[in-house]
Amino acid sequence: MHISDGTRLMLRIGTGITLAFIWIPLVVIGIYAFNESRSQAWPIEGLTTEWFSKAFDNPGVREAVWTSVQAGLGATALAMILGTLAALAVSRYRFFGRETISFLVILPIALPGIVTGMALNSTFTQVLNVDLTLFTIIVGHATFCIVVVYNNAVARLRRTGTSLEEASQDLGADGWQTFRHITLPSLRSALVAGALLAFALSFDEIIVTTFTAGSEQTLPIWIFTNYSRPNQLPIVNVVGLLLILISIIPVYLANRLTQDPTGTAAPGAGGAAAAASAH
């Protein structure tokens, strides 16, 4: 296709500006994590790694990390089971309301976070009369994590087709054997990818969490309660860098696991929809 040199240059500049806009804040927080001074002024005065050990020894941070890990693991486990079951039903059966399932799965992330948070909060406190604890955090996170497991599993099931499963049945395997020896192995890497994404999502979530956490503190909530305390700021910066790394690494791994061998699949808004859950 012909594109004039002028247009090409303009597009390059536009692309550069947008990329810089996207990446600069992440780089800045990375630099501040090594900031020697307690002051947050720019330019920073010197580099140090002492805040990393201070953050590591901080009891509040440790407790928050542990809460976040527990919530992430619990939500991921639940989302794995529910997402896989829904994906199997939608891709291997025809039934009334099949399209509704995809809509239902995506709804918790499509609606604004305060709506989901408020809805769960009203139900827990007014109808069920349960205390807001780690358990309620897990229920909330699992609800919006289902979609990433579901999306990954549906995409894989669509790509693998049913011929292997039919062959297995023809050779005399029953339904359970076929599931264990054929369906599950072909799903494995997609499920691992879904689990990594679900964990990253849960680890990072704050809006729904504040409505379902009660007095529990996850790592994002710890940041949210400490960003206004000047003394804690260096540690907040370190925790910030940590959170960025913990959410990026699983995404990178998940991307590697589900990569289309032909490299042709373009990520559409479906990918964006799944990622929208990060908020």
């Binding site: 992440l26 949210f224 959410s247 991307n255 990622a275 990060a278």
Partner: peptide
């Protein structure tokens, strides 16, 4: 995509 997934609050 990567920044999309990195921590919302930290951004």
């Amino acid at each position: 995509l990567m920044p999309l997934w990195s921590s919302y609050l930290v951004k």
